[in-house]
Every structure is written in C-alpha cells, then in structure tokens.
Design a protein around this nucleic acid. Structure first.
Length: 268
DNA sequence: CAACCTGTTCGCCA
DNA sequence: ATGGCGAACAGGTT
C-alpha cells in the first residue's frame, strides 16, 4: 500500500543491511521495473559496494552505497522491500536481490508499476534533487497550495491532490482522508474552492502526513477507527463522525469515498 | 468469470 | 505551450 507512510515503512526494511557489503546483486525476471536502466550494469556496479544509508521523499526512495552509487526505488501500486535469509530463493515477483553475508535485501513488485534505477556520482542524482518539497517542509506553504489550485482551476480537487509535483506522497486513501477532514466535496473544481477550504486542505495534508508517518510509517499499524481510512473500503461503510452512509464513486479516474453529510457539494 | 485495485505516463484534444 | 482526461501498463484478489 505504498503512499507516504508505507514508503517510509518499506525504506526501513533494508536497514539491517546498512554498513554491510553487497556480495552479489541479482536482477531477476522483471523487465519493466528497470525501465531504461540497464539491469546487468546496475548489478555489476552494486557488487562490492556497502549500503551506507537511505532516505525517502514522497513516494520515492534513495539508497546510498559506497563508491558514489545511488539506487533509486519506487513501489508503484504493489511494490515492497523486505529482508530474507542470506540463502533465500527468489520468487517470480522478486526483481532485485542484494546478497549480503547475513541476509538478502529484496525488491518485489507483482504489477511492476514500481521502478529501480542506478545513478553514480558524489552528489544525489538530478531526478532526486528536482522532487517536490515535502509537505512537512516550510516550502509547502498555504500560498503554494493556493497558487497550484489556481493553475489547476478546471480539475476536481481529488485529482489534484494526487499530483506528486505539489503533494508528494499523497495517494488515493490519503487524498480522501484529507478531503474528509477538511470537509471538502471531492468533485469541487479547484477554481471554485474558497480560501477557507484551500487553507483546510493545506492544514489537513500536513496533519494526515505527519500522523500517518507516526502510525503506519512506524510499525504498519492501521490508523485509528476515528479516521475515514478503516471505513472507506467495504460497501456500506459509515462516517465515523456522524454515522452517515459513505458515498463511493469514481472521481478523477480513481475510486473515491466521502461523507455526503459533512462533505456536501457547494450550493449553487 | 468479472470487476476491482494504494500509481504513473502517454497520447489526444481543447 | 498548457491543462484535463482516458487509456495503458500487469497481475493478484474478491
């Protein structure tokens, strides 16, 4: 379930490998996850290198190796990182296995919407440096959000919250959670949002991100029942605020859930 | 068997 | 050039 907090959780799964050498790097069946990256070259370059550390930014991850090697990873819809035994045998969806003396670091992704890439250099790769400022940074200001909504005036706010160039890390369930907390109807066009609604979305984007990182990002614990999150899946879910039956519909091309009582359409 | 899915990217069109 | 939208990608799950 890779959105902001799940990405952070996955990033930490490789922490046991920090400070240890990659004895062998095995790219496997997956072709699509490597995109324009040469998988064989990636494997050659990583062999003998030491995993020094990692960081996450939005839905992207970057693993730093000795010798100026950087392994970039994103998880798409179904990707995941995990640790297995040193002699673990890879399955059909395990696309990269990094062998270390004490364990294997595994990247898996059945649908292969995720991605792996390799960069070399003393500095972080250019694509990483051009990622949007995190929503918990000072650059993610209410004014920046308002300006972005002005530029996307004709699109429904639900669709715009999914745009990583302004809301890095926000995915489908986070977008619904933010709109529910901000009491904004998901189909509202960005150009029709009031100043108060824009500000509420800005504040809730930060709150949901921070709180998700402290729960899901820490130990994959589900958010509490007071969130929309646990109620939005099954048909007939009820709003944890007022008990109204939740609405479900496709908005901006994605399944969207909202409470018709606390998030009504604006009156004409 | 059919429908559904936590994400991006591309091509088409206005 | 910019913005909005639908399709495509690939496989598992319900």
């Amino acid at each position: 379930m890779p959105e902001l907090a799940e990405v952070e959780y996955n990033r930490k799964q490789w922490d046991p490998g920090r400070g240890q050498t990659v004895l062998a790097a095995e790219p496997r069946h997956g072709k699509r996850v490597f995109r324009e990256t040469d998988a064989a070259l990636l494997a050659r370059e990583l062999e003998g290198k030491t995993l020094l550390g990692s960081e996450a930014s939005g839905k992207q991850m970057l693993f730093r190796f000795s010798g100026g090697c950087w392994l970039g990873a994103s998880l798409g819809m179904t990707g995941g990182l995990r640790v297995e035994a040193a002699d673990f045998k890879a399955g059909p969806h395990d696309h990269l296995v990094l062998r270390q003396r004490r364990q294997s670091l595994v990247f898996a992704d059945p649908r292969q919407f995720g991605r792996l890439r390799l960069d070399q250099g003393a500095e972080r790769p250019a694509w990483w440096r051009s990622l949007a400022p995190p929503v918990l940074s000072r650059e993610f200001s209410a004014a920046a959000v308002a300006a972005y909504f002005a530029r996307r005036a004709g699109a429904p706010v639900k669709a715009v919250l999914l745009m990583q160039e302004r809301f890095p890390g926000v995915g489908n369930w986070m977008a619904d959670e933010i709109l529910w907390r901000g009491r904004v109807f998901p189909k509202t066009l960005c150009g029709a949002l009031t100043t108060a609604e824009t500000r509420a979305i800005w504040r809730q984007t930060r709150w949901v991100s921070r709180t998700a990182l402290a729960t899901i990002g820490r130990d994959y614990r589900d958010p509490p029942a007071s969130w929309l999150f646990p109620h939005r899946w099954a048909g007939g879910g009820k709003c944890p605020r007022d008990g109204a039956v939740l609405s479900r519909e496709e908005v901006g091309g994605r399944a969207t859930c909202w409470c018709p009582e606390c998030q009504p359409p604006a009156k004409a």
